[in-house]
Simulated assay, not measured.
Amino acid sequence: MTAADTPSDEELMQAYARGDMHAFEALYDRHALPVWRFVQRSVQNAALADDLVQDVWFSVVRHAPQYEPRAKFRTWLFTLAHHRMVDHWRTQKNHASLDAESEDGSALAEMLAAESGFGPERRLDSRELAQALLDALAALPEVQREAFLLQAEAGMSLAEIAQTTGASMETAKSRLRYARARLRETLEAHA
């Protein structure tokens, strides 16, 4: 099958709306991991991310009969994820910390630290840099963190970020620029 033979996400969603379960499976296979990573890194809790992402996919199923491709499917999907997280944050007061332990008991910074053939000192530097990055990401204002994660995890363009978050193109651009600048400052301080 060539790239020209591969159906677009929008075509798959329309096929799913007509009852083609294989089309849904293809969409899920294409987008499940990026959506989960976006949500997980936003809420910083794997179990909660699982629940929220499940709600997002249920929403895809519920909205399938009314789906009309007005934007890229990916943009629509990440908009659903964004709205689900906003709903969650409105009902929650406590947020998990980025340095909280993961399900397997290891800190997230430890998981982000690069494995290498270098000695303990180099691994320690890597863990410290990973923790500094996580701390800097957590310290970003929510709108900047979201813009950064939509680009880093979902590979979205500025226009798609703006559409997903309901912000203007200039606002999305500013949020992304400020997020990058703060993260760059953190990394340079640890270099």
Results as ranks from 00 to 15, higher is better:
M1N: 08
A3Q: 09
A4F: 04
D5A: 08
T6E: 06
P7D: 01
D9M: 07
L12C: 07
L12N: 11
L12T: 02
M13L: 08
Q14L: 15
Q14H: 09
A15E: 02
A15H: 05
A15G: 04
Y16W: 06
G19W: 03
M21Y: 07
M21H: 11
H22Q: 15
A23S: 03
A23M: 04
E25A: 15
A26F: 08
H31W: 07
A32T: 01
P34E: 13
P34K: 02
P34C: 07
P34Q: 05
W36I: 08
R41D: 14
A46K: 12
A46L: 11
A47E: 14
A47F: 13
A49G: 09
D50A: 03
D51W: 00
D51F: 00
L52S: 04
V56P: 08
F58E: 15
F58T: 14
S59N: 06
V60F: 02
A64Q: 04
A64V: 06
P65N: 04
Y67M: 04
E68T: 08
A71S: 08
K72E: 12
F73M: 11
R74C: 09
T75F: 05
W76R: 13
H82K: 12
R84N: 06
W89R: 15
W89E: 08
R90D: 00
Q92S: 10
Q92F: 01
N94Q: 11
H95G: 14
D99S: 03
E101R: 11
E103P: 10
D104R: 05
D104Q: 09
S106T: 09
A109V: 01
M111W: 11
M111Q: 14
A114G: 08
S116P: 13
P120Y: 01
P120V: 03
R122T: 15
R123C: 06
R123H: 14
R123K: 13
L124C: 12
L124G: 10
S126C: 13
R127K: 12
R127Y: 04
A130P: 12
L133I: 03
D135I: 01
A139W: 01
L140Q: 01
P141K: 15
P141D: 02
V143P: 02
V143I: 08
Q144A: 11
Q144I: 07
Q144E: 00
E146C: 14
A147L: 14
F148D: 01
F148C: 06
L150W: 05
Q151I: 12
A152R: 14
A152C: 13
E160N: 10
T164E: 09
A167L: 04
A167H: 12
A172Q: 07
A172F: 04
S174H: 13
R175H: 03
R177A: 11
R180M: 00
R182I: 00
R182Y: 00
L183A: 08
L187E: 01
A189N: 12
A189M: 11
A191P: 04
